[in-house]
Simulated assay, not measured.
Amino acid sequence: MPMPAAEIEALIREGIPDAQVEITDLAGDGDHYAARVVSESFRGKTRVAQQRAVYAALGERVGGELHALQLTTAAPVKE
């Protein structure tokens, strides 16, 4: 069963409260998404650590309800 983009966004925001989240349905099938997640909590962390934080927020849904996720993470740009 496909997972709605709004649910993905909600789970990420729940796990990373300050996150700015953009979700794109890549195939129009509710099964293949791209997510851009920006959070101050990522500052100083490696990309791998940032992505692990997002996957932790999504929990067991990755690989199950959420079949594929192209993930881009970053800390906010300081002005």
Rank of each mutant, 00 (worst) to 15 (best):
L69S: 07
H32C: 09
L69V: 09
D18Q: 07
L11P: 05
T72K: 13
R47S: 15
I12M: 08
Q20R: 01
I23D: 00
A19K: 04
G15F: 12
G63P: 01
R52V: 12
Q50V: 07
H67C: 00
A57G: 08
A35I: 09
Q51T: 07
G15E: 13
K45P: 03
A19M: 05
V54G: 00
A5E: 09
Y55R: 13
Q70S: 10
R61W: 03
T73N: 06
E79W: 09
I12Y: 02
A35F: 10
S41G: 14
H67N: 05
R43P: 02
A74L: 07
R52I: 12
L26W: 05
F42N: 03
V54K: 06
H32P: 03
S39P: 08
A5P: 04
Q50H: 13
A10W: 04
A49G: 03
P2T: 15
E60D: 15
M3S: 02
A35N: 08
P76Y: 03
A19D: 07
Q20T: 10
Y55P: 08
A57Q: 09
R43F: 12
V77F: 00
R43L: 15
S41M: 14
E60S: 12
L58E: 02
E65R: 02
A10I: 06
Q50S: 15
L66P: 04
G15Q: 15
E7R: 07
G28W: 13
V48M: 11
Q70E: 10
R36F: 04
G30F: 02
I16D: 05
K78F: 07
A6E: 15
A53H: 03
Y33S: 06
A19E: 01
V54M: 11
A49K: 13
Q51R: 12
E60L: 08
I8N: 09
Y33A: 07
P2I: 13
G63W: 02
T73E: 05
L26F: 10
E7F: 04
R36P: 06
A53C: 06
A74W: 01
L26P: 00
E65W: 02
I23F: 05
L26T: 09
A34R: 09
E7P: 06
P4M: 11
G28D: 13
M1H: 13
A35C: 09
A49S: 10
V21L: 14
I12Q: 00
L58I: 10
F42S: 00
Q20Y: 02
G59L: 03
E22Y: 03
G15D: 15
Q50T: 12
Q51M: 12
E79Q: 12
E7V: 04
H32A: 11
G64T: 03
G15L: 07
G63N: 02
Q20V: 07
L69Q: 05
D31E: 15
T72G: 08
T72E: 14
V62L: 14
T72N: 11
R36C: 00
A6M: 10
T46W: 07
I16K: 04
I16N: 01
M1I: 12
M1S: 14
S39C: 14
R61A: 09
E7N: 01
P76L: 04
P76N: 03
M3I: 15
D31N: 11
H67A: 10
E14N: 10
F42E: 08
D29A: 14
T72I: 12
G30I: 01
L69M: 09
A10R: 14
A34Q: 11
S39T: 00
R52L: 14
Q51K: 12
L11A: 13
D31A: 05
